[in-house]
Design a protein around this nucleic acid. Structure first.
Lengths: 123, 123
DNA sequence: TGGGATACTCACCTTTTGGTAAGGGGGAAT
DNA sequence: ATTCCCCCTTACCAAAAGGTGAGTATCCCA
């Protein structure tokens, strides 16, 4: 019973979707995986300055459990693990598009700071 | 300086948007206000079973501060306060549409429980 | 006279989330 | 010989989010 239940009864679709994306780094993981297709653990880590190893694995495991991310382990000498989006991860990302646009405009509107990280890679 | 900073530097638009929607009841507030146009405090409360008064006011205040919700107070004998969406609240809601659809399909797909609350009112 | 409705605020507590630091096991590079 | 890299796991802590229950001032209705 150490694991969180996840997937409690939802009131609306927004609820069900937010449950899956909420988490400090999940949006960014989706973003990175969308931009690069396939990434290894250390690559993701480097692409997300500030994330700790613990949080990264934790979020990746939850997203795997939620069917958004695929995890492939290669039993090689230096271990290699590759992450990519599943079909559901891809559709979720598409569904997040308009929200991302809205957020970007909000940033522009309010003049908030935004961290410039490889902006060119994203659309 | 008691107030949370909010609007920290964002990494991408998703970040900026999620910052504004994350909160246990915010999605539902948006939903209610969209469905009814204008609602009083107690009406919202009744429409969201389980929310505490504290959380409801807290979320409403934050959303007002974020420019999503308009709050109008009528200095009447039994106090009356009406809440509605601002222009930005409306566009945010529109941007959440695809996400809501995705979430609804996830619920269907996985066979999760969903609480039936006035479903008919929501498109 | 007493109770409920109205829209909150305040003090306190629990739960959840995120962060820090350390370790692990083996191979490759210096 | 030492260090680094790889992909984590575990134990422990701090901060944030959320919940509970009380109090407030006024009025209306029975």
């Amino acid at each position: 019973m150490a694991k969180a239940p996840r997937s409690g009864p939802y009131i609306c679709g927004i609820d069900a979707a937010l449950d899956v994306v909420s988490g400090k780094w999940k949006g960014l993981i989706l973003w990175e995986l969308h931009a690069h297709g396939v990434r290894r653990f250390a690559e993701l880590r480097r692409g997300m300055p500030g994330v700790s190893e613990k949080m990264l694995t934790q979020h990746l495991r939850e997203m795997e459990e939620d069917g958004l991310v695929r995890r492939e382990v290669y039993a090689e000498v230096p271990p290699r693990v590759e992450y990519s989006l599943t079909e559901h991860g891809i559709t979720l990302n598409r569904a997040l598009g308009p929200l991302g646009d809205w957020g970007a405009e909000r940033v522009r509107r309010e003049g908030f700071d935004s961290v410039a990280v490889a902006e060119a890679a994203h659309r």
